[in-house]
Design a protein around this nucleic acid. Structure first.
Length: 421
RNA sequence: GUGGCUGUAGCUCAAUGGCAGAGCACUUGACUGUGGCUCAAGGGGUUGCGGGUUCAAGCCCCGUCAGCCACCCCA
């Protein structure tokens, strides 16, 4: 029996069709980020475990990171997220980088999880960050970058939403309930509000040491859709969002808390309005992260969008256009072994004139050659047989309109350019 | 890490414990130089892998691997 080498669990093959989708997402991410003046950068795929140790979520590092010892015995991590690398890079050149820093990136990340819908072990992530400015208006700008991206894909505010909350606001509320000591566990508790039954959630709260009165207060708080009014930052954030023209996409949600430990202020997460898919993106403000990796305190805000969920949502909502996988503009057919050289010459002429030309590498039946062009989505075929050669022309066939006409060989490239627009 | 479902042709899936099939795709022809339709013929399988029960296993049992889905966590 043939041995079949399997791919690594949770790693995806990108056939041209899938790569076309990824590149389409990338092009729109690039366009949205650049429209706001963000510069592209990237960090290393390998980092030391120390970088993540105290900064990200505990589970993210301990349970989900790919960690291995290198030959020198150091603990190396395949990056599970980019923000710590960003903070490290900024801290390393803190004195030289002009601020504010507006940077974006798109690349691969790894997390050791059970693959399922919208989640794999190797995935791509778009990161957009602004470092060196503290105003809530800056948080609104990040939301505007998200909205610009959504709009480029064709999503309206009735199809996707950006939910936001504020960690400082929640800190204050939790402290007022006398729960400041258990802040981390209470955040986790809030995060699970929608995922558990009321009884299970109440029991979970009691196990954390939340008293009956405190639990009532917590529930009232989580039901309060107007809670944001108690936060100057939220007010300023919404005012700026209004000015940026993106308010329709925003929705305040007191249960949005985000899992990562380093968030300090605004947090956001985007979802499809029907709530069918997991979060499209997540992010927030992290004012202490640069300081935590050895720099001076420098405020920052950013978000990350994985490639899988947005791909699923875009397909579900019919936003993905027909994406060409073949770059070929014209297929040059080969009639017989004797005329092959002439077909090669014609293809070379077309390429020299700037036309992307492909030839059929054997003198198969024309039927087969056209079927190939059809299957790969090539629009034009240049048919070169004995009749055409005798008359110094090429039969130019448009597979889309199913029409054909002889074109003089000298004018073929120009004719193609004109028809291709 | 926990739980559920599913593994049969390239793809999507049938088959009461009793001869492994269909549709699509592919090849050839109808059509000697023309792709979307039609018709005909044809090729293609250790039923994921290993063991067990049985006269007989794709089907039942055990194990294992893989995929999908949910939980956990998160993009």
């Amino acid at each position: 029996m043939k041995t079949k080498i399997l791919s690594v669990k949770g790693a995806r093959d990108f056939y041209p069709e899938q790569l076309a989708l990824r590149r389409w997402l990338y092009a729109n991410m690039q366009a949205a980020a650049q429209q706001f003046g963000y510069q592209e950068y990237d960090g290393p795929f390998l980092e030391t475990l120390d970088l993540y140790a105290a900064k990200s979520g505990e589970e993210l590092v301990k349970e989900q990171a790919f960690v291995f010892n290198d030959r020198g015995g150091d603990q190396i991590t395949l990056r599970p997220e980019l923000t710590p690398s960003l903070a490290r890079m900024v801290a390393a050149r803190q004195g030289q980088l002009p601020r504010p820093i507006r940077w974006w990136s798109f690349g691969p990340f790894w997390r050791y999880e059970r693959p399922q819908k919208g989640r794999s072990r190797e995935f791509f992530q778009w990161n957009v960050d602004l470092i060196g400015a503290e105003s809530p208006a800056v948080d609104a700008e990040l939301a505007a970058v998200m909205v610009t991206f959504f709009q480029r894909l064709g999503f309206t505010s009735s199809e996707v939403k950006i939910q936001f909350n504020n960690r400082r606001l929640m800190d204050g509320q939790i402290a007022a309930l006398g729960l400041a000591e258990q802040k981390k566990s209470v955040f986790r508790l809030i995060d699970r509000r929608d995922k558990m039954s009321a009884e299970a959630w109440n029991k979970y709260a009691a196990d954390l040491g939340v008293g009956a009165a405190q639990l009532d207060g917590l529930q009232a708080m989580l039901a309060d859709r107007e809670l944001w009014r108690k936060s100057d930052e939220c007010q300023a954030f919404l005012d700026a969002a209004e000015a940026l023209g993106i308010a329709a996409y925003l929705e305040y949600d007191p249960t949005v808390i985000r899992g990562l430990d380093y968030y300090t202020g605004t947090v956001f997460e985007a979802r499809d309005r029907e709530g069918e898919f997991r979060a499209i993106l997540g992010g927030g403000r992290y004012d202490n992260l640069v300081g935590d990796v050895g720099g001076d305190r420098l405020p920052g805000v950013g978000f990350a969008m994985g490639d899988m969920v947005i791909g699923l949502v875009a397909q579900k909502y019919g936003k993905v256009p027909a994406l060409a996988t073949s770059p070929t503009q014209v297929l040059v057919t080969v009639f017989s072994p004797a005329s092959q050289a002439e077909s090669l010459r014609l293809a070379a002429e077309l390429r020299a004139a700037g036309v992307r030309a492909e030839w059929y590498p054997e003198a198969a039946k024309l039927d087969r050659q056209l079927k190939y062009a059809d299957a790969t989505g090539v629009r034009f075929a240049a048919i070169l047989g004995p009749d055409e050669l005798a008359q110094g022309v090429v039969m130019l066939k448009d597979l889309k309109t199913r029409t054909q006409a002889p074109v003089s060989r000298a004018q073929l490239a120009a004719e193609l350019q004109a028809r291709l627009g």
